[in-house]
């Protein structure tokens, strides 16, 4: 089956005063219909930049290049600005981390949702629009629709605002939702509610989803496939259960082991294994594999040669010596 979204060798560079900063390098992934792809990485790993590049939302100081950047039959790199507007919001929509600042504080919530419908479906007349908005608010689990419709963003809680953002995102029945840290600013109990809502939309409306997050737990519970990013590159991609239970890339393994909750039987207060050092400076990149200065299994080859993506039995891993099921290099 042809995937809904196909990305091949996406690269994004920023011009900075210190030099060229390659924020995303040779990133390839795809999303099929109805699938949830989780992208995990630490801050600065390029996970958000990649998605902003898809949406064409990056600032002018960036250079985006790719072999393929295809959504349905649209080439996202060669859209006219009019086409881009209709794809953005109409076919792909985005949910951001901070719901409070993504809504305009000067207008009532209801009219902001109406506005977004107005842009993409101008043929709907105003009385139907109102009805449509109320249906949307119900769909995202808001009980007192009437009150929320007339509220200003500051009168609503963070979780409520995020529901409104989701209502706006699904207003035009998009095929793909990109959720960039949708629950990071929210409390755990609210986070669970919002994630449940997204999962429901995915199930019932067959919306594909890209779930960008730093929280592996969120991806484990809600994604079908996972892509782990490190320093602008995808280091490992695969089915969630396979990657989590048997990580092949040392970085994925380290990320999981550093979580206090990864081993439920872990001794109380034992030191957590963690990678030494920091994410490399991308402007002055280390030679060879980007993880080599921090990798516990580093070999001589890793320091001189940069590994490319290897596909082994349906799993994608960027490492010369992928880890076996025992957790050591095979």
């Amino acid at each position: 089956m042809k995937p809904l979204l196909e990305v091949q060798n996406l690269s994004v560079q920023f011009d900075t005063l210190r030099g060229k900063l390659p924020a995303v390098q040779q990133l390839s992934f795809s999303v099929t219909e109805g699938e949830v792809l989780g992208i995990v990485g630490e801050s600065g790993s390029g996970k958000s930049v990649a998605n902003l590049a898809l949406m064409g939302l990056l600032p002018k100081s960036s250079h985006v290049s790719a072999d393929t950047l295809r959504f349905q039959d649209f080439d996202l790199l060669r859209l006219s600005s009019k086409q881009r507007r209709s794809v953005r919001g109409g076919l792909i929509s985005m949910i951001f981390q901070d719901p409070m600042s993504s809504l305009n504080p000067c207008y009532r919530v209801g009219s902001q949702i109406e506005e977004s419908i107005n842009i993409h479906q101008p043929e709907v007349d105003s009385s139907h629009r109102r009805q449509h908005v109320e249906q949307l608010l119900q769909a995202v689990g808001i009980v007192d629709v009437e009150r929320v419709y007339r509220s200003y963003p500051h009168e609503l809680s963070g979780g409520m605002c995020q529901r409104v953002m989701i209502a706006m995102a699904i207003a035009c029945n998009p095929k793909l939702i990109i959720a960039d840290e949708p629950t990071t600013a929210l409390d755990v109990t609210i986070q669970a509610q919002i994630l449940e809502l997204l999962a429901k939309l995915n199930r019932e409306k067959k919306m594909s989803m890209i779930l960008v997050t730093h929280d592996i737990g969120v991806v484990v519970e809600h994604a079908d496939r996972i892509m782990v990013m490190y320093a602008g590159q995808a280091v490992e991609t695969g089915k969630v259960d396979e990657v989590i239970s048997h990580p092949q890339h040392p970085y994925t393994q380290a990320l999981l082991h550093a979580l206090p909750g990864y081993h439920s039987e872990r001794e109380h207060r034992t030191p957590l294994p963690s990678l030494a050092g920091l994410v490399p400076d991308l402007i002055h990149r280390p030679q060879g594999c980007l993880l080599s200065p921090r990798c516990p299994f580093v070999q001589d080859r890793c320091k001189s040669e940069e590994p490319s993506i290897e596909i082994v039995s349906g799993r994608v891993c960027r490492c010369f010596y992928p880890l076996g099921s025992s957790g050591d290099p095979s």
């Binding site: 809680s157 755990v188 109990t189 669970a192 994630l195 929280d215 484990v220 989590i244 239970s245 439920s264």
Partner: peptide, 20 residues
């Protein structure tokens, strides 16, 4: 409500509390 990291521990019928 806390997401589990072990796929085996993810229960499909978790009870979420309503409201805020």
């Amino acid at each position: 409500s806390t997401p589990h990291i072990r796929p085996s521990e993810v229960s499909s019928k978790r009870k979420l509390i309503r409201g805020e």
